[in-house]
């Protein structure tokens, strides 16, 4: 290595990466192992890949008709629908509320903003039972609608705060210029301000999606069969016939991939979002 002073940082970052990526690689490798390979001691690094776990998850091949496989695949669909809808709704409401909080003065604004944030401070376990009662009596328990509502609720507070921050970075002159030249505030918001905060919207959607996708507490108590999400499904994969390890690992891998993909796609916007406060101020 040419630069000696680079050795220590590289070692530290390498260890940190191993600590973070190691379990993920382990999960992915294990998901491809057959049952004997999985329990071999010492662990085998060279093995013949098996797709039984994935077949079970997606309900294809040998596992096409098995009851459990249908459950995993359905949960994956549930998770996709619920997380995406919740993300879209939370980002949309958060954007509108964040704009209002950034631009307008209204009664008890400070208290309102604190209340909005406080929805994220409550441990879900503390209120789960009551949500269960509420959702059951409203017929929302174990439905997509109910879970999409919950996902939106848990994210809209943070989305409002993040978006308020981004709107605060946009000078109010933008709307002033638009208004004085004969445009409506709504036009200014849609055509001028929103494009200026698209990095912020991407960041907000990113965070919301992660929280929605990984949500476990509410999913575990509010869903039973129809709307069961993938994290909940995986945790309950230990069935009467024993623990289906390969299936759990395959499902786990499937659970991780959308997050990686999503962040890969919006990574440029996230960077823009982070530098926006600096660049946006310049006239």
């Amino acid at each position: 290595m040419k630069n000696k002073h680079l050795i220590l940082p590289v070692v530290i970052l390498g260890l940190y990466t191993l600590y973070n990526v190691g379990p993920l690689l382990w999960l992915m490798i294990s998901s491809l192992k057959s049952r004997p390979d999985l329990f071999a001691m010492p662990p085998t690094l060279l093995f013949e890949p098996h797709l039984a776990g994935y077949e079970a998850v997606f309900g294809v091949g040998a596992a096409a008709d098995s009851a459990s496989s249908h459950g995993v695949f359905a949960s994956l669909i549930n998770s996709i629908v619920i997380a995406c809808s919740g993300t879209v709704l939370a980002t949309m409401f958060g954007t509108l509320a964040g704009y209002a909080a950034s631009r307008f003065n209204f009664f008890a604004k400070g208290d309102f903003m604190f209340f909005v944030l406080s929805t994220r401070m409550i441990p879900p376990v503390a209120v789960m039972v009551f949500y269960h009662q509420m959702f059951s009596s409203l017929g929302l328990a174990d439905t997509w609608t109910g879970m999409i509502m919950i996902t939106t609720f848990i994210n809209v507070g943070l989305a409002t705060w993040i978006m308020k921050g981004f709107f605060d970075g946009v000078p109010t002159e933008v709307e002033a210029i638009a208004l004085m030249n004969g445009y409506s505030r709504w036009y200014a918001f849609r055509k001028l301000v929103l494009p200026m905060v698209r990095g912020g919207i991407a960041a907000t959607a990113g965070f919301s999606f992660i929280f929605a996708w990984n949500e476990f507490a509410f999913g575990s108590i509010l869903t039973t069969t129809e709307a069961k999400t993938l994290p909940v499904r995986i945790s309950s994969a230990a069935g009467a016939t024993g623990i289906e390890w390969t299936q759990i690992f395959a499902a786990g891998t499937v659970l991780v991939i959308p997050v990686i993909l999503f962040f890969y796609l919006i990574r440029r916007h996230l960077l823009m979002g982070m530098t926006f406060g600096v660049l946006g101020k310049k006239g």
């Binding site: 000078p171 002159e173 002033a176 210029i177 004085m180 004969g182 409506s184 101020k281 006239g283």
Partner: peptide
Amino acid sequence: PMFRDLAMVFEGFN
């Protein structure tokens, strides 16, 4: 401001 028929140059951001 939409209907005041004024044009303005702002100090900082424009």
